[in-house]
Design a protein around this nucleic acid. Structure first.
Lengths: 180, 180, 180, 180
DNA sequence: CATGAATGAGGGTTCATTCAT
DNA sequence: TATGAATGAACCCTCATTCAT
């Protein structure tokens, strides 16, 4: 059963993604969730805490997702990651936008500093463990490059270009990392 | 001579970079620039207009920078671009942060949509003209990849990782694109 | 056995004394008493009613105290009163502060108007009955002066002066009213 | 000419006196002063600052008042002080109530702690300088007693008793301290 | 007797903007 | 150009109280 607290989180996530954290008022969250202000502050100490809750929850989901497959061979796993990310990127643009919004809003960034770093490290280690089996000596650098490429594509896709060739970019990555 | 208007722009830029656009009040700009509110609104129709002015000005500077060298050979030009960008990235973190802040704040993004796209196109064409001389058939894709790599590195450097191996990443790019 | 209701009263008294009535939230009482909001409102119709209950209870205690001794000679009784009050004043500062807080907060004062007046009359009559046996014609004025002196000392002690010579003041009163 | 800032202070003083500091909303001040909320916060950083401004101003007035006469003989000066205070007490009940409200509201008391102490010391020294010429060895104690008597009378008059014999109390004090 | 989710009015405060000077 | 008093809407948050369980 969906609790009111979950409803608030969902609504807030959606509004933060659409308008940004700073531009989303608590009142707007209440209206959209059909809930009183009092209730929001009954469940969360502050607007900031809502954001923190959302971020934590999404980190958990991300971890579950990235930890999934384990016994496949490296190139298969990279393929899964790439395809998984592009799928999400295309189907859930807002969520990525939300994350980038948070990361580049000095106030929210400061607020989530430790979580952001923790999540990045998690992702990095996950990727590195794959590259270790491909090229042990360069696994760190390769991981950074891999992550930079994906983030860079997301960035270009989400904010700079109209008609970004997202499919071609995906194929390029697949070719580079899985040599089909 | 530095006019009051320039002073306002400078101050605003610095504050926008430090605290984000939404979190910077006009009052704060006035205090920091030692200028009255009336004067700010004499020179700019609104707070938004200040941001637009800043963005336009910084686009100009960027264009001047990227257009500079012209008759060198492609690999030389890529080397110049890479080194120029990394130099800026390391010496002027705040300015990059400011740009990313704007691009991922839905409200400001909408406001500057056309300028952002224009600037991206400008940069893209500039890069493409180089890659055309390296590999004519793939110049578009190569350009997108090149831009994604640089943006992705900037993103990782600026917000995700502590002790990011920025120099190694630069060397990696230089090796990849200029084959020394 | 201490009932939950007593616990609530105790906790509320302490918090009202520490932070004032207006600045003490029902939520704070609940937290401190480890009790739910529902329970508080089960025992008391409103926050105001808690205050009323506390005031009534403390009036009762005060009456019991002042009525105690009866057959001693007047100067002995005055001595007892003075010493009793100073003892309380020094050992239970917060309780006096709480009473003064209530008496000078217009909203609470209005609420407890009748009780405050009743208590004052009670004290006054008690004192007057003593002075009647000392100087029948001036007993009223003497009582008012006696009460004013004690209240004035309490006021100075509790809020105006650092290092108030409370013992000297007590001795002064004892000398004045019991001529030892 | 009366500035808007003065108007705000006046209005706030009156409302704080009538309803107490905590129970007076900034909105109420605005309504009564026919002024926007923005203006209040243009002139004062916070509601607290309004209170501080009022208190400081009233301390100044008090100082000017108590410092006035200097060459009269001690009993004359005491007479002036007593009569001045009783005049004020009777004509300006609210102002006294306001001061007592502040002194016994823990939050406001804390806020004005230093000013309250400063004012008390000022008054004390002023009184002591008079008593020194009457009875040098006991001037301190006499001053404390004098102040306690006056404060105690004010307290009784303002909150405890109906039909308080304020005139008789004044005469009693005059007789005691000026022996007419 | 006991809980705590839920409400909604109102609290203090911020802020972009205007305008008389 | 230049000032800063003045506005009013919106913001985040608190709180006494109710009610289904």
């Amino acid at each position: 059963m969906k609790t009111k607290k979950d409803l608030i989180i969902e609504t807030a996530t959606s509004l933060f993604a659409k308008h940004g954290f700073e531009k989303t008022s608590v009142a707007a969250i209440c209206e959209n969730a059909q809930v009183s202000k009092g209730l929001v502050y009954h469940h969360f100490k502050s607007k900031d805490e809502i954001l923190i809750a959302i971020y934590e929850q999404s980190t958990e989901e991300m971890v579950n997702l990235s930890m999934a497959d384990s016994r496949k061979k490296p190139s298969e796993r990279l393929k899964d990651i790439i395809e998984g990310l592009f799928l999400q990127l295309e189907s859930n643009k807002q969520f990525y936008q939300f994350n980038l919004n948070i990361m580049f809003q000095p106030s929210t960034k400061r607020m989530l500093e430790s979580q952001i770093k923790e999540r990045a490290t998690l992702l990095f280690n996950s990727v590195k463990s794959i590259f270790k089996r491909i090229d042990a000596t360069n696994s760190e650098l390769l991981s950074y490059v891999f992550i930079a490429e994906i983030d860079g594509i997301a960035l270009s896709y989400l904010s700079s270009f109209e008609n970004y060739p997202i499919t071609e970019m995906k194929n390029h990555l697949l070719k580079k990392y899985t040599n089909d």
